[in-house]
Computed example of a mutant assay.
Amino acid sequence: MAEKKLQASVNIKNKKARFEFNIIDTYVCGIVLKGTEIKSIRLNKASITEGYCGFEKDELFLRNAHIAEYEKASFKTHEPTRPRKLLLNRNELDKIHKQVKVKGITIVPLRMFINDKGLAKLEIGIAEGKKLHDKRQDLKEKDAKREMDRAMKR
């Protein structure tokens, strides 16, 4: 029973991604992990903020995402920032590969979570970088919304 609650609470987000990029499309994919990596993820000891995704041959990899070493492991543990293979259907991989070939399009990790079956999943987004004026506009909209909410509570 406690295991189900622990799995449901794992929700590691990349907060900078939606501020830095316009998300065009999203996909949910599996991750190839080692035993100590999944244990660290279940303890929320992971960060995907600096991570990015890229193709190597015909396979998609998550790079530069940090999954902390499991504290209770023996001498045999994993490397925190090793490349991790992402699991998608061939049709989805081909579709993503075509989109990424366009200049200015990249693949960013948005959210890492554990599904109902206990498997680690990664939500990735096909993204286009925002310009400085777009970021300023987002901040203005966010401030205006905050002011409206404050006025409604009064």
Rank of each mutant, 00 (worst) to 15 (best):
Leu33Ile: 06
Ala73Gln: 08
Leu122Lys: 02
Ala2Phe: 14
Ser74Asn: 15
Ala73Leu: 10
Leu62Pro: 00
Asp116Met: 08
Lys121Leu: 07
Ile124Ala: 03
Ile67Pro: 00
Leu6Ile: 12
Leu122Asp: 01
Lys72Trp: 11
Ile41Ser: 02
Ala144Asn: 12
Glu128Cys: 11
Gly104Asp: 09
Leu119Tyr: 06
Glu71Ala: 14
Glu59Gly: 04
Ser40Thr: 08
Ile38Trp: 05
Lys76Asp: 11
Ile12Pro: 01
Phe55Glu: 01
Lys130Thr: 06
Ile41Val: 14
Asn11Pro: 05
Ile124Cys: 04
Ile24His: 06
Lys76Cys: 07
Asp143Asn: 12
His78Ile: 07
Val10Ala: 04
Leu93Asn: 02
His66Trp: 13
Ala8Met: 13
Ile12Cys: 06
Thr77Gln: 06
His133Leu: 08
Lys76Trp: 06
Pro109Ser: 08
Ile24Thr: 11
Leu139Ser: 09
Gly51Asn: 03
Arg146Ala: 15
Arg111Pro: 00
Leu119Asn: 07
Pro83Met: 05
Arg63Glu: 09
Asn89Ala: 11
Glu71Ile: 08
Lys130Phe: 12
Val100Ala: 03
Glu79Ser: 10
Lys103Leu: 15
Lys101Trp: 05
Val10Phe: 10
Asn11Phe: 10
Ala120His: 01
Lys34Thr: 10
Asn91Gln: 12
Cys29Val: 13
Pro80Glu: 07
Ile105Tyr: 10
Lys13Thr: 09
Lys72Pro: 02
Arg63Ala: 05
Lys153Phe: 05
Leu33Ser: 04
Arg63Leu: 15
Arg18Ile: 02
Phe113Asp: 03
Asn22Ala: 03
Ile31Glu: 00
Leu93Pro: 01
Lys153Pro: 00
Leu6Ser: 08
Asn89Arg: 13
Gly118Met: 04
Met152Asn: 12
Lys121Ala: 05
Glu50Arg: 12
Asn14His: 04
Glu147Met: 07
Ile105Cys: 04
Gly51Glu: 01
Met152Leu: 14
Lys95Gly: 04
Asn14Gly: 03
Thr49Pro: 04
Gln7Pro: 02
Gly54Asn: 07
Lys5Ser: 10
Phe61Glu: 02
Asp143Ser: 09
Thr26Glu: 10
Met1Gln: 12
Asp138Ser: 10
Arg111Glu: 02
Ile126Tyr: 01
Thr77Tyr: 02
Ile96Cys: 03
Glu123Ala: 06
Lys130Asn: 07
Ala120Gly: 01
Ser40Trp: 12
Asp138Val: 05
Lys117Tyr: 01
Ala17Asn: 00
Ile48Pro: 00
Asn91Ser: 13
Ile48Lys: 01
Lys135Asp: 05
Ala151Tyr: 06
Asp149Gly: 09
Phe21Ala: 00
Glu71Cys: 05
Phe55Ser: 01
Lys121Cys: 15
Gly104Arg: 10
Lys45His: 14
Arg84Lys: 10
Glu79Thr: 14
Lys103Phe: 12
Asp94Thr: 09
Glu59Val: 07
Leu62Gln: 02
Ile114Glu: 08
Val108Ser: 00
Ile31Asn: 00
Leu86Cys: 03
Asp25Tyr: 10
Asp143Gln: 13
Leu93Phe: 04
Asp116Ser: 13
His133Asn: 06
Gly51Leu: 03
Ile38His: 08
